[in-house]
Computed example of a mutant assay.
Amino acid sequence: MPTYIFLPIIALLAIALAKVEQVSAFGLSALPLAIVFGMFYGHFSLRVEDERDKIFSNFCKQKLLRFGIILFGFGLSFQQILAVGWQAVVIDLVMISTIFTVGTVVGIKVLKLHRDVAILTAAGSAICGAAAILATESVLKPKQQHITIAIATVVLFGTLAMFIYPFIYQWVDMTDQSFGIYIGSTAHEVAQAVAAGQSINSETMQTAVVVKLIRVMMLAPFILMLSAGLNRIGTDSKTKREKSVIAIPWFVFGFMATALINSVVILPELIKTALSFASQFSLAMAMAALGAQTQWATIKEAGPKPLILALLLFIILIIGGFFLSSWLV
C-alpha cells in the first residue's frame, strides 16, 4: 500500500485509539501511538519506497509537523496562566531550565551521548514530551533515529510517572490544587497530566492540565532561545562560518499567534474541535512518517545510555518538582 494512503490510516487509528478509555488511562496520546504504528509499518512492509512515497514522507515530517504545532496554539490561552497564579509559572520555569540544562550537560559531557539525542531527550522531558521533541527537531535537523530514541525514553518514563503520582498523593500533605500544580509541572505529556490528575479527583486534574499547558506555551520562547544559542555556539567550521545567518523557526511565531488569537477571541466550540483534530492529525502524520523510516536495529544500537539519561531526568522531575511545589505553593 502506498505511503500516502497508509500514513493517514495510521494517524487516524492512533487518534481513535487514544480516545479509548483503557488506552487513555495509561496516558498514551495519539503521537506516541502513531510513531509505534509507523515503526511496525516500516519494519514489516515489503513495499519499496518510490520517489512519490519519499516526497510525501518528507512533506509530513516537515510541513505537516510545523502546521500541526501552529494549530496546537488554539488549545492554549494566556488566561490559563492567571487561573493558577504566579507560583505555577515560576515552578514551570525552574523545572524547564533545570531539566534541560542537566539533561544536556550530563548527556553530552558525562554519558557521551550524541548532542542531538541529549538535547531532544532533555527538551522532551522538560516541556511537553513528543511535541517538544518534534519542535526541537526543526532547529537541530537530527537523524530520524535520534528523534525516535528520545521519544521512546520520554514516553516510557512519562507513563511510569502516571502510576507514581497517585501513590505519592497518599503519603503527602498537599491540597488537591497544590498536587495538581505538582503534576502539571512535572508530567511529560498533556495526556499523562490528564490521566494522573483524573486518578485523584477533578480539581487536581483541572489544575494539572492548566499548569501543564503553561509549560507547553513556554515551548515557543524555548525554541527561539535554543535556535539563537546553537547558532552562536557553532559545532563545526561550517556552522561557524555561517553563524551570522540565524536559522529562525518561523512556525514558532505562528504558534504564539494562534495562542494569542485564542486568548482574545471566543471561538465557537465546533471550530475549536475541528482545529484540535487538524492539529492532532497533522502531528500524528508526522510521527507516523518518522516511525516508518526508523529501524529497530538503530534503536537497539543506542544502548542503555539514553535510558539512563531519561531516568535521571525523571528522578529530578518527581523529587525536585515535589519539593519545589511544596515550598512555593
Rank of each mutant, 00 (worst) to 15 (best):
315 I>Q: 15
162 M>K: 04
94 V>G: 07
68 G>D: 03
130 A>M: 04
248 I>K: 10
136 T>D: 04
153 T>L: 07
297 A>C: 11
314 F>M: 03
28 L>C: 04
47 R>N: 12
120 L>R: 10
138 S>C: 08
304 P>R: 08
253 F>E: 01
240 K>S: 13
271 I>H: 15
315 I>A: 13
329 V>I: 09
216 V>E: 08
84 V>Q: 11
29 S>N: 03
147 I>P: 09
100 F>N: 04
307 L>H: 13
262 N>C: 02
307 L>Q: 15
168 I>L: 07
133 I>T: 01
211 V>F: 01
151 I>H: 01
20 V>M: 09
118 A>G: 03
280 Q>K: 14
278 A>P: 08
165 Y>F: 09
221 P>W: 04
261 I>S: 10
272 K>I: 09
96 I>C: 07
23 V>D: 03
209 V>H: 00
89 V>D: 02
102 V>P: 12
57 S>R: 12
160 L>V: 09
113 L>N: 05
281 F>E: 07
179 F>C: 05
33 L>Y: 07
12 L>C: 10
116 D>N: 12
100 F>L: 13
95 M>A: 01
15 I>E: 13
221 P>T: 06
152 A>T: 10
270 L>G: 11
260 L>D: 03
51 E>A: 12
209 V>R: 06
245 V>G: 11
79 Q>E: 14
205 M>I: 03
5 I>C: 05
120 L>M: 11
225 M>P: 03
190 V>M: 09
270 L>M: 13
137 E>S: 15
64 L>V: 05
291 G>A: 08
208 A>P: 05
124 G>L: 06
36 V>I: 14
300 K>E: 08
197 G>E: 01
34 A>W: 01
259 A>S: 15
139 V>H: 09
221 P>G: 04
15 I>S: 12
184 G>R: 02
295 Q>M: 15
78 F>P: 13
16 A>V: 14
